[in-house]
Write a protein that binds this DNA or RNA. Structure first.
Lengths: 189, 189
DNA sequence: TGAATTCCTTGACATTTATCAAGAGTTTCG
DNA sequence: CGAAACTCTTGATAAATGTCAAGGAATTCA
């Protein structure tokens, strides 16, 4: 697993950083079961996760009890409740393993230590933050400016994994529609 | 105007930074008319704006020609197409002055120079990025998990300025509903 | 493997929200 | 200031989406 993270870091930076082994040593391996919860609403997020294998769902539960997915993360991506993690404040979201996963996790203290010790780390973090922000912005815009069918088309073109790899129920929760509506709209494509 | 920016920076950092005058010198004052466009879709965003007075609307135009607002920014806030600005890529959004504004703007080159020269600047940028990301995340979650009436209530409690200071049409475009629906739902509050 | 659970689809119906049209009110700007 | 443009509201109607129920298919896990 750590080989994969090593590879990921080298690709991101475009070269082999000095303290790479120190960085890798900070991470702990973790295997999870299907549907295991990594974070619940109200809980403080204690880790950043690197996904070596599997898929994580970040979602909220609305008044009616429905799960609404903000994002799915697959292999070679990072997941955490960024804001809650950085400020060690309770999360408003849940993080769930929607596949059995192999993760590499790093704690808050270790994360801070790395940020202190390794300037490049801060740079990578900034990059990730910018891309995450950009995705969230894009997602707000698809919700305000597209109807359900347009959003499905958008998903086909931009995130086909969500449609091919995950259940329809999960895809529907990402699209912000009911599973029934999703079934019906699929015929109109 | 620069007094206001000086004040803002000091408050954000919690103290007076060394290079404050250098920073302030990088900004250019700019007055805008009502409805002036600062950025159009397809254009590359060349500036970061600090709002000394007024309000900026960041929005997209959907297939049907409707404006969908992602965010409104008021006094003492920063606005730009962050991702497009950092990577100097075409924007997918528009930025419009929905009030006559007094802005302080800084160009891409000046922004990079500041980031190079002033470590604290990077720190402040990271803070702003985290808060912006958090807002965008919150906004995605309100869209996926709340109906129109719940979103209006949420707005009353969290962003009353949008309801009191701006037109109903603009508020509706932020809520992702038509002005007619907005009129009707207001009676149900 | 096999029982239990969850998921997907379909139908019928209810609810929410959009669209179009029109008139009164308000704002903008030369 | 006053004409032009835009905004807000209301009604009528249409379109989109949600909810509930039920059966068959697929998946999970002991």
């Amino acid at each position: 697993m750590k080989t994969q993270l090593r590879q990921h870091i080298i690709e991101r930076l475009g070269r082999i950083p000095d303290n790479l082994d120190t960085v890798l040593a900070s991470f702990t391996e973790r295997k999870t079961k299907l549907n295991e919860l990594l974070l619940q609403e109200g809980e403080i997020c204690r880790h950043v996760y690197f996904i070596a294998r599997g898929c994580l769902q970040v979602f909220v539960i609305g008044k009616n009890g429905n799960e609404s997915t903000r994002e799915f993360y697959f292999e070679n991506n990072w997941t955490t409740d960024i804001f809650g993690f950085q400020n060690q404040l309770p999360s408003r979201e849940y993080i769930k393993c929607v596949e059995p996963c192999r993760l590499l996790q790093v704690s808050f203290d270790q994360f801070q230590a790395m940020a202190q010790a390794i300037p490049e780390f801060v740079q990578v973090y900034k990059q990730i933050l910018e891309v995450s922000y950009n995705n969230a912005v894009y997602r707000v815009n698809t919700f305000t400016s597209m109807d359900a069918l347009e959003r499905i088309n958008w998903l086909y073109e931009n995130q086909p994994q969500i449609l091919t790899r995950l259940s329809s129920k999960l895809a529907a929760s990402y699209l912000g529609i009911s599973p029934e509506t999703f079934t019906r709209l699929k015929r109109k494509l």
